[in-house]
Design a protein around this nucleic acid. Structure first.
Lengths: 216, 216, 216, 216
DNA sequence: TATGAATGAGCATTCATTCAT
DNA sequence: TATGAATGAATGCTCATTCAT
């Protein structure tokens, strides 16, 4: 399975092979359960070479996270046309997101599951990426609210919470779409868009849900 | 630190102490990184006793998952009045959910993050709980749709996706509320309710989001 | 399987139950691999009681060896009529030996295999029993030699070696007869008797084997 | 104590060192009581290296058994000249056997005592070697019987029993010769040869032992 | 650029044994 | 006479990491 054992190749190439292997193993086993032996073998190199290039298991995992996070944010960025209307931008972003995660399931697992399960250093790196996406969504919401000239002062907490909910829903749907046969990235995006946009719209226009009976 | 070292107590009590300690350590370190030594020490007993009562690390982790999952579903069940209107039931369920997860952060972490990161056996146990909750939400949606006499045949995939998105949003908000100072369980529940109910309503009534421009 | 759990029985009886269990477990697993837990369970008592009566694993094993060795030597002794001719005595002894070992396979295993595998203390106890039997055989040989008035001074080493060989052959045949279906104690005894008696006779009469060609 | 700590040697050499150490420790302590720590230390390497090369305690023990069994059968084979008369071949085989076991006492202990005391896998490996030797002896007996044109149809059970007895006597004598000062391999071989050949001869010629008085 | 040889440190698990009742 | 509760001390095994070439 692992990469074909070709001797003497430039460092950059070897590094990518190693990262490919590492993402695969980390994604499937988790950070702790993944062994450097298995990664080296899958990469088709000896263990000392992995250390020579990537320094340590921790650094290797960090490098995986950074590479996958960059690829994901880049994919989303590339999918969105900046000038488009907010709902359109959200739709495009969602499509790009679900498409990319479907195409890189191990990378997505590393970001979504594994990286958050282990102490500070890694969680921080993922949090940075998450923040970037949440911010992007938050801005879309804010822009929409401004354009609608309604309720321009949705409290900050509220907006952050909404973005958090939206991103959480997306993450959950991504995992679901990846593991449920017959569900495409497009369908996942549509499901979430339908679900979310009305709720956002109502909020923007100051019509939140209120119970028909007094709440406790 | 750790339980006060009281000698000679009945097995049932000791077992709960051990599970308390295990949930804490598993939640903070993850399954692999958690050591039986640390768990035993926090529980105030020797390692052999942990093995005598809980058999193995794997069984101990399973026991944690089962206990925490049972506690969470029970909390949600107890918070919901069966006869109430669907939106009201959803609201009550969300409040109970956010309250419980806020009060048992380690237990929630075990269920939400750690248990899903490790092979089949554990993921399956959590999936069972998740399914139970998703089913509950799905039924609320279905009931609402039926009551509204609208679009009674939302495709099954669509409903499952919605439930998945809703639960994912809730999970994400729970983590957010737990780590963001000044955000209460009530606020988290309200944010999600506002976000979700309109979207669900629109869908039920056959008014999904549609792009102002043709989609690719 | 284990003894029926009857409470409060006299010490002597309990001890025999424990020894029964211990012989079975030691015989099947070996000294080290046998666990006090398993022995106690098979004996139908709690572990502390085993310690109360038998002190330690080492003492328990010693007690097993002593009991089984005594039983075996007693069986052989009881099978031999003192006044009979030497060949007759040997035959009777062999029959008794093969019969007893066939009826107490675990006890025989403990003596033959397990006890000799572990340091000094145990090997010594078995050696004592072995010496007793070897001595008995040696005396039969000596008596025969004296009666025949031939070569009355077979060197001591030679006699000891013969006895050793005879006992070794018997031990080997006992294991073989116990594990080979269709071989009875009587047949095993006959085989060995046929094999041994002629050789002994020749030696007594000063007609050892000599090579047809010079030995190196 | 133990091998001189020379660093960096080829795998094949290290493996032999490890097997040397393992045979010694297994022979002296038994399988269960032997610790991988002690073996590694005696071999002059760290424990992980033992595992890297030999996989597990079980595999290590197997490797010991195989190596020692091969060495012993090879020694016997090399000591016997195929064309010689049967008694001559038996004599040579016995000499080679006693010489080899005297020179490799730990190896012999591993084969004779330790390997047979522990479950199936090991016993099977030794049984294979034993069968090889028993077969060799059985053939010598059969050849002798054929050459003598006497009683060509000694029942199979009888022959197998004889071989078993002979090998058992040899095993016992080997242990005895190894632990009794002043007894050489040559003497042990002579003792057994004297003892056995006459008995075999009588049997071949149809003159088994019969009691002077009726047997029970 | 690349690797075979080697290890320190840690971890899950087991077991003989004892204490308090 | 009898036992439920509890532990100190190993032991097999693995893993991230480095050295010498």
């Amino acid at each position: 399975m692992g990469a074909v054992k070709t001797k003497r190749m430039p460092r950059a190439v070897r590094e990518q092979q190693m990262l490919d292997a590492a993402v695969r193993i980390f994604g499937r086993r988790g950070y702790r359960a993944a062994s450097m032996d298995e990664i080296a073998e899958l990469a088709g190199v000896s263990k000392p070479l992995v250390y020579l290039y990537l320094n340590s298991k921790e650094d290797l995992f960090s490098a995986c996270i950074r590479r996958e996070a960059a690829a994901l944010t880049e994919a989303v960025r590339a999918g969105v046309r900046p000038g488009a209307p907010a709902d359109r931008q959200l739709w495009e972003g969602l499509r790009a997101f679900f498409t990319h995660t479907a195409q890189h399931p191990d990378g997505w697992t590393v970001l979504h599951l594994q990286a958050r399960t282990h102490g500070e250093p890694f969680a921080t790196e993922v949090a940075a990426m998450r923040t970037e996406i949440v911010t992007f969504v938050t801005q879309l919401i804010a822009v929409t609210a401004r354009d609608a000239h309604h309720d321009p002062d949705l409290p900050e907490h509220e907006v952050a919470g909404l973005a958090e909910a939206l991103v959480g829903a997306a993450e959950s749907l991504a995992a679901w779409a990846n593991t449920t046969p017959g569900v495409t990235a497009r369908q996942a995006a549509a499901t979430l868009m339908n679900f979310a946009w009305a709720g956002l719209g109502n909020l923007m226009e100051g019509r939140p849900w209120t119970s028909a009976v007094p709440l406790t």
